[in-house]
C-alpha cells in the first residue's frame, strides 16, 4: 500500500512538472500529456526493466510513445528517474535544448523513437518485437498510442502484421480519452467499438481505468494476456486530467493558459506559486 501511495504521489508530482515545463517553455500539448501520466508511472516505476545504465542494452524493455505530442510527460518521468539531468527540463522548447515539442531519440537518453507524426510507433515497435523473437530475447515492447491516432491507416497495417506474426511480446496501450485535436472522435470520425475492432484484428484486449496505477500494474504484470497474440490495454482516460477547466475540453489541445487560468491550475495541481 505504501508503494502504491508512493506511485500516486509520483503521478501528482509528474503532473505538476508537466504543467510547469510547458507553461515555462511557452507551448506544448498539456492535456495529452496529463492523460498518460499514470500509464507512464506504472510502466517506468514498476514494469520496464530499463534504467539509465541500460538504455543501450539489447535485452531492455522498449517503451515507444507513439503519440509523441505527449512527450513532456515522458520527459518528466525520464528526468525523475535520472535518464538525464532534471535541469534539462527547464530548457524545454528553448533554442539549443534537447527537449523539443516532440521527442528525438538521437538526442534524449532513454527515448526509443522520434515520434510526432502519428501512426508510426506501432509499426516501429512491431519491428522491435519481431527482432526480439528472432533473437530469442525476452524483452517486451510497449507502445502508447492515442485513440485519435487509430484513424491512421498505418496503425491497422501494423495491427494485422503483429497478429499474423504472433508477437505476444508486444503490448499497445491506447490512451482512450475520446478527444482529438478539434473535437471528440465521435463528432469527427468515430473509432468505436474500439475493443471489437482490435479484437477482430487478432489482438487480446483488456480495458482499464487509465488513471488507476494499481489496475494498470496488475494488468501489465500478467502480460502476455494470451500466448501467441499481441496484447492491448484500452486505458480509459481523461484528456487534461487534473486541471478542471482543461478536462475533456478539445479547445485546450494546444493552447496556453493565461495568468488567471494558470493560477487556478497551479492551485488544483498543488504547485507553489513563485
Amino acid at each position: 500500500m505504501d508503494k502504491m501511495n508512493h506511485l500516486i504521489n509520483k503521478a501528482e508530482a509528474i503532473r505538476r512538472s508537466i504543467f510547469k515545463i510547458i507553461c515555462e517553455g511557452g507551448g506544448g500539448h498539456i492535456p495529452a500529456s496529463l492523460s498518460i501520466v499514470e500509464i507512464l508511472v506504472a510502466l517506468y516505476y514498476e514494469i520496464l526493466n530499463v534504467t539509465p545504465q541500460t538504455i543501450s542494452d539489447p535485452g531492455r524493455d522498449r517503451f515507444i510513445l507513439s503519440k509523441g505530442h505527449a512527450c513532456v510527460s515522458l520527459y518528466a518521468v525520464l528526468a525523475d528517474l535520472g535518464f538525464f539531468d532534471k535541469s534539462e527540463l527547464d530548457t524545454f522548447g528553448r533554442s539549443g535544448t534537447i527537449l523539443g515539442g516532440h521527442p528525438d531519440m538521437l538526442k534524449i537518453p532513454g527515448v526509443e523513437a522520434s515520434t510526432g507524426a502519428l501512426g508510426h510507433g506501432l509499426p516501429f515497435g512491431t519491428g522491435i518485437a519481431m527482432a526480439g523473437k528472432m533473437d530469442n530475447r525476452d524483452f517486451k515492447v510497449f507502445v502508447v498510442m492515442g485513440d485519435g491516432e487509430c484513424q491512421e491507416g498505418s496503425v491497422w497495417e501494423a495491427a494485422m502484421f503483429a497478429a499474423a506474426h504472433r508477437l505476444d511480446n508486444l503490448c499497445a496501450i491506447i490512451d482512450h480519452n475520446r478527444l482529438q485535436a478539434m473535437d471528440t472522435l465521435d463528432n469527427i470520425v468515430p473509432i468505436s467499438p474500439l475493443a471489437d475492432k482490435w479484437r477482430a484484428f487478432g489482438w487480446h484486449i483488456m480495458e482499464a481505468d487509465g488513471h488507476n496505477i494499481k489496475e494498470l500494474i496488475d494488468l501489465f504484470s500478467t502480460l502476455p494476456f494470451q500466448t501467441g497474440k499481441p496484447s492491448m490495454i484500452i486505458a480509459n482516460t481523461i484528456k487534461g486530467k487534473g486541471v478542471s477547466f482543461m478536462e475533456n475540453e478539445p479547445i485546450w489541445h494546444y493552447r496556453m493558459p493565461n495568468g488567471q487560468e494558470m493560477r487556478v491550475a497551479y492551485n488544483e495541481l498543488g504547485i507553489e506559486p513563485q
Partner: peptide
C-alpha cells in the same frame, strides 16, 4: 508484409534499431 508498404518500412526501422 503483404500489400502494406508503410508498415514494411516502419517495421524495418524497428528491426534495424535492434
Amino acid at each position: 508484409f503483404g500489400i502494406a508498404e508503410a508498415n514494411m518500412i516502419g517495421v524495418a526501422a524497428g528491426l534495424a534499431s535492434c
